[in-house]
Amino acid sequence: MAQRSIVRTKAVVLRSIDYGETSQIVTLFTQKKGKIGVMAKGARRPKSSFGATLQPMAYTQVVFYYKPARTLQTLSESSHVQSFHRLRGSLPTITVGLRIVELVDALMEKEDPQPAAFGLMVRALHRLNHSEVRVGNLWPFVQLQLAQMLGVAPAVERARVEAVTGEEGLLSLADGGVYPTDATPERPTRASRSALRAYAVCARADLDTVMRLDMAPAVRREVNALVRDFLRYQFDDAYPDRSRSVIAQIERAGAPGSGQSHS
């Protein structure tokens, strides 16, 4: 017989969809249960105690009644662990944050706890909440770290990165490694040496180091494209693409803060 239990856990909100007149269906990435869907009854009422805690990217402590047979659990309580409200204070931080939640939502299996991925997401959102410069560095970093946690760590070796001495080198989409142009890795793609070095830093260094990395806009574009190609090769259709064109529209419209803060 299915075991009912009350679960209290930390969670990051991935998505909220309105349901009925006043309720919401919320996708949470929880520390204890992994990705889970909950019904938040009355969440849209003006005086709802859920307040702003069910907005995407919110870091909350939730309580829900868990029943294994259910596809949607019933949310009982939700309160901020940290409100991260500054994260919602500019377009660059919002767009990077939304891409992170979209990625986690797409790549995580339901009810598969991934404490390391949860920790990565909280660290990334925390950094977004406090950073004003180079917030765009978080995006390739989070993608490569998440890939590593899901078993497709980029095989970046320092010696091979340093062997790239010319203008260009290669990235293997099969193993995520960086190679000189005379190597013959599986599924190679060409890139500039600067982009490959920045890619290697994002793959191997810690978050503080990555956030200190200055990338020229052209290099950043190249790094983002390399990481995208690698993850798309590894995760195929599971790699999310929906927000990409919207964010491109936002950035194309000459959103000045967007460009400055990302670079």
Binding site: S245, A248, Q249, E251, A253, S258
Partner: peptide, 21 residues
């Protein structure tokens, strides 16, 4: 103004052109 000011897709910070726009 928008036509003059809008950068070409390849100058986007994220480098991800929107082909559908």
């Amino acid at each position: 103004t928008a036509a003059d000011a809008a950068p070409a897709p390849e100058t986007m910070p994220d480098g991800e052109a929107d082909d559908d726009a």
